[in-house]
C-alpha cells in the first residue's frame, strides 16, 4: 500500500509540475501548482508529518495560491506570449536538466541508502503537540523573528499597493 500511494501521489506531483511549466496560461499553471501542493501534503502524511501536511494545505494551497489566483484574475492578461528560443538552449536544455536530476539523485542515494524504508505509521512524532512543543522551546527565537518578518511583509505589501502611480 505504501508503494502504491507513494507512486500515485508522486505521479500526480510530477505530472502537475510538468504541466505547470508547459502551460502558457498562468491560471492553468496555478491550478497545477495547487495539484502539486495537495499531493505533497498527502506524501507528508505518509511520512508521518500530520501537522505539516495540514499546514501545507492551509498555508500554501489555501492562502498563498488564493493570492496568486486573485492577482491573475485581477490583471487578467491572458496567455503568455511565446518568445523565440535560442538554439543552444533548445537542444541542450533537456539533457542538462536530466544531468542535474541525475547528479542530485546520486547524492541522494548516497545520503539515504535504499535499505532504509519509509513505512506509514512507524514515525508518529509529527503531531501538532510535538511540533508546537519544539516550536515554542528550542525554536522560539526564530519563531518570533518570523512573526516580525510577516508584519514587515504586510506593511510592505500595503505600502506598495497604496502608492499612486506617477
Amino acid at each position: 500500500m505504501d508503494v502504491f500511494l507513494f507512486f500515485l501521489f508522486a505521479a500526480i506531483a510530477v505530472g502537475c509540475a510538468v504541466n505547470l511549466v508547459l502551460q502558457t496560461h498562468p491560471i492553468s499553471s496555478a491550478i497545477s501548482l495547487i495539484g502539486v501542493m495537495v499531493s505533497l501534503a498527502a506524501l507528508y502524511l505518509l511520512l508521518g508529518a500530520e501537522f505539516i501536511a495540514a499546514a501545507q494545505v492551509i498555508v500554501y494551497a489555501g492562502a498563498i495560491m488564493v493570492l496568486f489566483i486573485f492577482v491573475i484574475m485581477l490583471l487578467n492578461t491572458g496567455s503568455e506570449e511565446t518568445e523565440p528560443v535560442n538554439a543552444l538552449s533548445r537542444f541542450l536544455g533537456l539533457p542538462l536538466l536530466l544531468v542535474m536530476v541525475g547528479l542530485l539523485s546520486v547524492v541522494m542515494l548516497d545520503v539515504a541508502p535504499p535499505s532504509q524504508e519509509v513505512r506509514f505509521g512507524s514515525f508518529t512524532g509529527g503531531g501538532a503537540a510535538d511540533v508546537g512543543l519544539l516550536l515554542f522551546t528550542k525554536y522560539l527565537l526564530p519563531f518570533e523573528a518570523t512573526s516580525v518578518l510577516i508584519l514587515i511583509a504586510i506593511l510592505g505589501a500595503v505600502v506598495l499597493a497604496m502608492r499612486e502611480v506617477d
Binding site: 491560471i27 495537495v38 501534503a41 501537522f51 495540514a54 499546514a55 494551497a61 489555501g62 489566483i69
Partner: peptide, 25 residues
C-alpha cells in the same frame, strides 16, 4: 477520527474557495 481532525477540516475548507473563484473567472 484524525489526531489533527479540526485542522484538516480547515484545510479542506480553505481549498473550497477555488470552485467559486475559477467558476467566476
Amino acid at each position: 477520527d484524525l489526531p489533527v481532525g479540526l485542522v484538516m477540516v480547515l484545510a479542506i475548507g480553505s481549498i473550497g474557495i477555488y470552485g467559486i473563484a475559477l467558476g467566476g473567472w
